[in-house]
Design a protein around this nucleic acid. Sequence first.
RNA 1: CGGAGUGUGGCGCAGCUUGGUAGCGCAUCUGGUUUGGGACCAGAGGGUCGCAGGUUCGAAUCCUGUCACUCCGACCA
Length: 591
Amino acid sequence: MVQRLSTLFVRTLRDNPADAEVPSHRLLVRAGYIRRAAPGGYTWLPLGYRVFQNVARVIREEMDAIGAQEVNFPAMLPKEPYEVTGRWTDYGDNLFRLQDRRKVDFLLGPTHEEMFTLLVKDLYSSYKDLPVWLYQIQNKFRDEARPRGGLLRGREFSMKDSYSFDLDQEGLQRSYDAHRNAYIRIFERLGLPFAIVSAMSGAMGGSASEEFLFPCDIGEDTFVQCTACNYSANTEAVRVGVADAIDASSVPAAKVVDTPDTPTIQTLVDLFNAREDLQLSSRQWTAADTLKNVVVNLRHPDGRLEALAIGVPGDREVDLKRLEAQVSPAEVEAFDETHFAANTALVKGYIGPGVLGTNNASGIRYMLDPRVAMGSAWITGADSRGKHVMNLVNGRDFTADGTLDVAEIRDDDTCPSCRSALTIKRGIEIGHVFQLGPKYAEALGLHVLDKNGKQQTVTMGSYGIGVSRAVAAIAEAMHDDNGLRWPLEVSPFDVHIVIAGKDDATITAAAESLVSELESAGLKVLLDDRQGISPGVKFKDAELIGVPNIVVAGRGVASGTLEVRDRFAGTAVETPISQVGPQLVAQVRGK
RNA sequence: CGGAGUGUGGCGCAGCUUGGUAGCGCAUCUGGUUUGGGACCAGAGGGUCGCAGGUUCGAAUCCUGUCACUCCGACCA
C-alpha cells in the first residue's frame, strides 16, 4: 500500500512539547504518533497506530505459535469477583470505580485474573481440558498517582495479558516456560534489548516471578546484574547470602564507651578515630564497623500494629521498597515520637541489641541483616543516653530473632550466586511472568476432576506485556538526535520516499514508478509528495518519522540514480534507478 | 500524599513587578518568488490569557479559592 504524506493525518512539530521530558515521549509527540487526550491517556494517530498494531501483531503471532488462544473481555467489570479475591480493597486508590444508574458498583479492569478464572470455571471441569492458555490484548485502567513519560506509564494503557491453567506444578512450570520462551522471541523480534530478572510477586500473589526489563537510564525499576555469572534480579528480590561465621575468640569483652554529641554515625566514627584509647592500630574505624538499629512499625492487614527493629551495618540504609516487599502484606509505617515515648526501654539515638528482641526489655522483634556474621564485633548503641558499646559480638553478647534482608543494595555488592561483584542498573518493565499457583482458583472455586474423579484445584500462571509501553520502549531504545528509528518489524512503513528538488516531471515520474513497483511487491510505502516544501523540511521530517529505509528522488534522477538511505547505518548511496526496487524488496522480505 | 514549578491561538514563548482591553516565532490560509538540509516577500484567519469569585471606572496583570499539568520524592503486576 502507499500513503501520501500530503494527505496523511499528521502534523510534525519543530519544537519539543513543554510537558514531555523523556525522549520517547517528546519524539512520539513531535513526529505526530500520539496526542495527549487525558491525564495519562493518549490518542494514537495513524502513524502511531500502525506501530502499535505491528507490535500487537508480533505478540499475537508468538502467542498463537505456542498454542495460546485470544479472547476479549470487557474493560468494565462487576465488583463481585474482585471482592471475593480481596482485590476490590487491596488495589485501593489505584482502581477506577464507577456506579451504574442503580448505584451498582463496577470497576475498570486493572488486570483480569478473576475474569479469566471465572471464564475457565464456566466452561471447563475436567483435567482432560487442561492445560489451557488464554490471552487478550486490551486496555487496562489504573489510577496511577503519577502518570509519566507519555506512553511509559499511563492510566489507560494497552496490555497483552495471558493466563495458564494447569492441573499441577509440573504443568504450571511447562506453561511458564512456554510463555517465558515466547516472550524472549517477542522482544527479540521487536528489537528490544532486555534482561530477565528475578522479581517479587507483590500484590499479584503466587511464587515464582520474573520481569523482562529493558535496560535504560530513565527506567523506574532498579535491578542488579552479576558481572560474572548470569544472576540478575530486581533489587527488591535480591537475597544476600548469610555471612559465614567468624571466630570471635580474640575479641575483647564488650565495653561501654561515653560518646556524647554523636547524633550521627559519622560523628560516632569520628569520635572513635579521635580518641587514642579507642583507635585501631591498623586502620581507621568506618561506618561499616557500627551496627545501626532502625525501628519501624508494621501495619498488618487486620489493622494490628507491630514494632520491628532491624540491625544493619552503619554504612547502609534500610531500603523501604525491599522492606515492604519482605513484610507484605503488612505495610510499613513510621515509628515516631509517640511510639518512642510509649516504649521506655528505647533511647532514641542509642538503641542497641541490649534491649531489642522479643525476650528483652523493649519486647520488639529484632532482625539482623544477613551481612552481620555470627561472631562479628560491632560498635552500637548502649541503650543509655550518650553511651555506645564496642566489641559487642553477635552470638556471644547478643542474639537476634532472625535475619531480614532489607538493607540497600549497592554497586559492587557480592553476587549471592557466585560471589562476584554486582552492578546496579535501571530498566523499564516490559514484561512480567508469574506462577500464580492456586490463589485465584481457590478463591473463585475453579476445580476440575482428575483421573480418579477427585476434585483438584487448578494452578495458574499470568503473563503480561505492556503493548503501548513496548512502543515507547522501542522508541526509547532506537532513537537518535534526529528522531525516531523503527526496526522494520514495527515500522509504520517499509520505505519512505522523498521527492526532493525542483518540481520536475521526471523526478516525480521516477518516484511514482518506484512506488508502483514496491507496492506491487507488497511493501508499505510512505511517499512525501508535498509540493512547495523545501527539501530540508522533507529530510527533517523523514528522519523524525523514523522509517528505516529512505529513498530520495532528486537531482540524481537526471543521471539515472536514486539515493538510498539507511536510517540506522546513516549511509546514503546513489543507486541506479533500476536496482533500487529489487534491492529494497529483497531487504524488506529478508527482515 | 509531601516539596518545587508552570497554566496566554495547534506547538514553543513574551507581556504580569508598575492594572488601560493581547504580542512574537513556528504551524495554517491567499498571492508571488524559491527548491538537496527546518527558504523569502506581501497579505490573512485563529486566543474573552485554566476555571470561579473578589478589588477596581477598568484585570492576562492585584487578592482569594479551585482545577490541571510538569519535575523531585512517596506510591505503583
